[in-house]
Each structure stands twice: as structure tokens, then as C-alpha cells.
Design a protein around this nucleic acid. Structure first.
Lengths: 132, 132
DNA sequence: GTATAATATAAGTATATCATTATATAAATG
DNA sequence: CATTTATATAATGATATACTTATATTATAC
């Protein structure tokens, strides 16, 4: 789960790839067209497109020896916001990668450093905002 | 615009920061509590929280000498998906950072490399998917 | 089958990000 | 005002990502 989300956000968190996404959202394009638009080397474009493809935000269509890319149509909903919303809304119990962190979270009150830290300002501290 | 989106996606595209976001979504927490939960050094936590804060996805509340952090409540809607949706849905004309790329995009048909590339497979190529 | 075309991969370098250790700042306490 | 507390910053080293150049792959055309 965490890996999927970081993969998507990492892929989109880079200016060149973001620009590529923008153009692919308007029109299906092949590598050579992206090279012309972005005015960058072919390997650079191929590598960035590969990252986008591995993150699942673009799809490939091969015609003869050429590769046409377009954005995953679900990109504005499920493909990007879906995993993010699921992650933020689900119970931490359901996130295996955070099992140890959750154990420590549930036992914050018996943590020595935190107890020491809370002495004196307990009244003002953490309000529970949301319990799912 | 691009800088804002890459800033947000970069901030969220890292496992440690994603985990921090998850815990902050449940409860406001101070640095020492995050240190205990994540079992990481204090500077490491402070640095990651700083990245999240600069991206605008968490907010800070200072009480005495302590800093409490919580997620920006709009994070599931406006703060993350808003800029992303705006970017993907707006006209490219309205994105100053892509002005040069857009010029080349609009003149793809007179690009020699692209013309050469299209000879022979023009029929099968790019279908316009979306024109805004 | 050889040559060309379109894209992908590899290797090397440069840069950016992450993590650690040490130190600095800012606020509160005695 | 010196000391402790809580957090922030700086400096360094380690790792990851990005970019370039060169080469490999894959498919078509001759």
C-alpha cells in the first residue's frame, strides 16, 4: 500500500514527468513526439515514461515499432486519489507496513521520553481529532 | 503551479513522511511523540516534518516550547487533489512553465524528426483524446 | 538477410535527497 | 541568569535519482 502510493507520488513529483503527463492527457503521443515537445534526449524521455508507466499512471499502446502513450483515464480519480484516500481513511491496523509504529503509538503513554516530555504541558497537548 | 504540485507530491512520495501523515491524521502530535512512534532520531523527524509543512500538508501549533503538528484538514480534497486536478484539467496555455513546450507541441507537424517518424504509420497514430 | 527506424537499456557522472552526529536556538524552570 | 527542555539547523557521509553518451533490442523495409 505505502509502496504503491509513494510510487505514484514520486512519479508525479518531478517537473519533467508532470509536463509529460499534461501533454499525454490531451493527446496520445509517441516517444519521438515527446522528444520534440520537451526538447530533451530520447533516453531521458524513455526513462521518465518508464517511471510513469511503472507507477501505473500512463498506459502504452504498441503500433509496429512505435510506442504510443496516454494517461490512465482514471488518473484524476481512482488511480491517484483512490490509494491516497484509502490510505488516509483506513484504520492503521490495516496497514501492515506500520504495524510496529502502531504498537508504539498505542503505547505512547508508557514511553519514558514522551512521559518526560509531557510533564508540565499535559493539559495543553494533543487533542484527538479523528478516530476511524 | 508545477512547483506547488511537485512540492506536494515529493513531500508525500516518501515512506517515512507518508507514515507521519497517517498518524497526524488521527491525532495532533508533537515531535517527541513522532520520534517515539517512528523510532527515529529527532533531527530526522524534524526534517521530514519541515518538508511536509513547506508543502502545506501539515500545520503547526506552538504551545510553550513545544510544536504540535496536524494534517491540513483539506488534504483529502483541495490541498492535494485540487492542484493536481487543476493542473490536469486546465488549458496548457494557462501554464507559464510550459510555454515553450506548448509552442513545440502546436508545431509538431512541422518538426522534421517527427515528420520522418510519422512517415509510414500516420494512419495508425495519435488520436486526439481530449481537447479542452 | 542486411539496413534502417524507434525505442530501450547500460554505464558513468552529476546532483539531489536522506540519515547521522554535533551544535545552535528558544522557551521555561529553578 | 544558569540550566534544562524541546526543537531546529549545520555539516558530513551515504544512498538514490537524474542526465548524458554509448550501445542494444525489436520491428520493419529493402
Amino acid at each position: 500500500m505505502i509502496q504503491q502510493i509513494t510510487s505514484i507520488f514520486k512519479a508525479l513529483g518531478e517537473p519533467t514527468r508532470l509536463a509529460i503527463m499534461k501533454f499525454l492527457s490531451i493527446q496520445e503521443l509517441c516517444i519521438c513526439e515527446l522528444v520534440a515537445i520537451m526538447d530533451m534526449s530520447q533516453p531521458r524521455i524513455s526513462q521518465h515514461v518508464k517511471v510513469l508507466k511503472q507507477a501505473g499512471v500512463v498506459k502504452e499502446r504498441k503500433v509496429k515499432q512505435k510506442s504510443y502513450f496516454s494517461v490512465n483515464p482514471a488518473i484524476l480519480n481512482d488511480a491517484v486519489i483512490g490509494p491516497w484516500a484509502s490510505f488516509m481513511q483506513c484504520s492503521i491496523d490495516s496497514i501492515p507496513e506500520l504495524a510496529e509504529e502502531n504498537q508504539r503509538y498505542l503505547q505512547l503513554d508508557s514511553n519514558e521520553e514522551v512521559l518526560a516530555c509531557k510533564n508540565g504541558c499535559l493539559m495543553e497537548s494533543s487533542e484527538v481529532k479523528q478516530v476511524i
